[in-house]
């Protein structure tokens, strides 16, 4: 594609691509503006005035803190479980050829390939069938299930890069299976796992569809927001929370990108 560097894009293409990116970003920027509006009762534009007072109001809202705390705890535990399960699965699939590897890949991807509502309702009816009451752990159960795939995708790509001869070299030099894992495999897949974990955290932190079926009366931050969307009661607080959520989810995405940018497959391609 030598000539591409010399020729610049046709004007029409530039406009279409730029407009497309603007379409993706302007609504999110708008969220930042609304967090400062003085208007309480409607979504009036342009905002009649700007204020910082809603940040203080939001800061003093126990329900927001409670929802945030639950979301962070759910995301942390789900990520931990997904890290273990996803890494094990990726290790098994990439290290050995065995009957049924394709099936296992499909099984891991299925929870995000199928619409979330199906996962949600399936889990809910299973809980009610097994008479499991809704709890922190029922939320985690659902989240960990669809977070596995994010860790798996990242880990599988990296495992392929850790060539089999590195592991053989380690064993040849006298390291047993555990030493080889500790000194060779873990350092080589570490950043991929960290990236996968960050994406899993972001995925869980933001999840609402499955959660509505597995949370019962508990309120994660997305559930709290959903209630505000359906029945707006405190618009200014919602505006501030929305902005915070945008920032909180951007950080892991940027982090995961910088951890994997040198690799052959950059994280996050398959949400």
């Amino acid at each position: 594609m030598r000539s591409d560097r010399n020729t610049s894009a046709p004007l029409g293409l530039k406009i279409a691509a730029g407009a497309g990116l603007a379409f993706l970003h302007l609504p999110i920027l708008l969220i930042f503006l609304y967090a400062f509006t003085t208007e309480e009762k409607s979504y009036q534009f342009p905002p009649p005035g700007l204020t910082l007072k809603w940040f203080a109001v939001t800061w003093n809202r126990p329900d927001v803190w409670e929802a945030l705390g639950l979301s962070v705890r759910v995301a942390a535990i789900s990520t931990a479980i997904a890290l273990v399960l996803g890494t094990l699965c990726a290790a098994a699939v990439s290290r050995t050829k065995f009957f049924g590897r394709e099936t296992i890949s499909l099984l891991v991807i299925l929870p995000i390939a199928l619409p979330g509502i199906i996962t949600g309702i399936a889990l809910r009816s299973a809980f009610s069938f097994a008479e499991i009451p809704f709890s922190f752990w029922t939320i985690v159960l659902g989240h960990a299930t669809f977070c596995v795939v994010v860790v798996y995708n990242n880990a599988v790509a990296r495992f392929r890069r850790v060539s089999g001869s590195l592991i053989e070299a380690s064993m040849d030099l006298g390291a047993d299976s555990f030493q080889t894992f500790r000194y060779i495999i873990l350092p080589n897949i570490g950043t991929a796992l960290l990236a996968g974990g960050m994406l899993a955290f972001a995925l869980s932190f933001d999840e609402v569809i499955v959660t509505t079926f597995t949370a019962g009366q508990q309120s994660t931050l997305p559930i709290w927001m959903l209630e505000e969307l359906v029945r707006p009661r405190q618009r200014p607080v919602t505006n501030v929370v929305a902005m915070v959520v945008v920032i909180v989810t951007f950080l892991p995405i940027l982090g995961a990108y910088y951890l994997t940018r040198d690799g052959d497959q950059v994280a996050g391609g398959g949400k």
């Binding site: 993706l24 970003h25 609504p27 999110i28 708008l30 969220i31 609304y34 409607s42 979504y43 009036q44 534009f45 342009p46 994406l199 972001a202 933001d206 609402v208 997305p222 927001m225 959903l226 969307l229 919602t238 929305a242 959520v245 945008v246 989810t249 951007f250 995405i253 940027l254 990108y257 996050g268 949400k271």
Partner: peptide, 24 residues
Amino acid sequence: MLPLWSSYLVKIYAWKLILAKEGI
């Protein structure tokens, strides 16, 4: 990547702000 991964509900919320009668 950033819009793809940013919060689903916040994205919907942003459009609620945009499309509202009194909105942008």
